[in-house]
């Protein structure tokens, strides 16, 4: 369908231009509130990371940077296609770009779905490992107390910090050398305190995963909302609603989607890389 549906600006606006620039100022004001919403969690991130640098190093190493990188590329690509979709709408004179806008939006929506799919993989893996709050945190006080008691009775070692790498190495070396008690200890806590092949006994580690789930969860909600908006805009674009003189929904939806990308641009290195 290569025709357009002419837009008539609302009667309380002086002109279509005034309507468009008001809508844009409105979305920018909204984006500011979004940034402030996220900044609360980013401040929490900074404070907790500064107070527990050692814990943070070990806990954040549990994230898969490959999945994070793939998701970054997926989101950047979607930002690119949505920007091109806005441009296609800006240059749409008689509906000749309708199909192009639609295809670009569909690619963007598929990117959003891909992002959510990868996020689902990450989440389910971590939830399975008991890293979600309220399940079986690896640093559950009872588990830590039992582990400390077991180490003391077996090896006569007073353990104050379970994140002490030398202690973990000692325990694993004993287990590898065939010391039955060490194997028993590792096996016994395998279900609650291990992740991958590492004995994860980082005290306060739940703080990292609390921040991780809150930040990525809030971001994920924004991905879902943005994707829903893009689907709605796609429907309009197929009908020929957006053209050179009226493309406010495409632009405003695109700005929202870019913000989702902006947040992730900071989230990715902060959680997965440093």
């Amino acid at each position: 369908m290569s025709s357009i549906i002419a837009h008539k600006h609302a009667h309380f606006f002086h002109s279509a231009d005034q309507e468009a620039s008001s809508a844009k100022l409105g979305i920018w004001l909204f984006l500011v509130t979004e940034v402030l919403l996220f900044s609360g969690l980013f401040v929490g991130y900074t404070v907790i990371k500064t107070l527990h640098p050692e814990m943070w190093k070990v806990a954040s190493a549990q994230l898969d940077w490959v999945l994070g990188s793939v998701n970054t590329i997926v989101l950047i690509s979607s930002s690119w296609t949505v920007a091109l979709a806005v441009r296609a709408a800006q240059t749409n004179v008689k509906g000749e770009n309708n199909a192009k806008i639609g295809v670009l939006l569909i690619i963007t929506i598929l990117c959003a779905l891909g992002f959510l799919g990868i996020k689902y993989m990450e989440y389910s893996h971590k939830i399975h490992d008991g890293l979600l709050w309220g399940t079986k945190y690896f640093n559950h006080p009872d588990a830590i107390a039992a582990l400390k008691a077991g180490v003391k009775s077996t090896f006569g070692l007073e353990v104050t910090a379970l994140s002490d790498a030398s202690f973990l190495e000692t325990l694993k070396a004993h287990a590898a050398a065939g010391t039955e008690q060490a194997q028993h200890l590792i096996h016994h806590y395998a279900s609650t305190v291990t992740y991958k092949d590492t004995l994860m006994t980082v005290e306060q580690g739940h703080l990292f995963f609390g921040i991780y789930f809150l930040l990525t969860g809030l971001h994920g909600i924004h991905v879902v909302i943005g994707m829903s908006l893009l689907i709605w805009i796609y429907v309009g674009s197929v009908k020929g609603r957006y053209y050179r003189d009226y493309y406010t929904p495409v632009e405003v939806g695109g700005l929202y989607w870019h913000l989702v990308d902006l947040i992730w641009i900071y989230l990715f290195p902060l959680l997965y890389l440093v």
Partner: peptide, 21 residues
Amino acid sequence: NTAIAMLVATVKASLVALFFM
């Protein structure tokens, strides 16, 4: 490391905000 990562992220964010947005 954190400073470098934030610098790169800020360059990326600026590109998105200035051109894409």
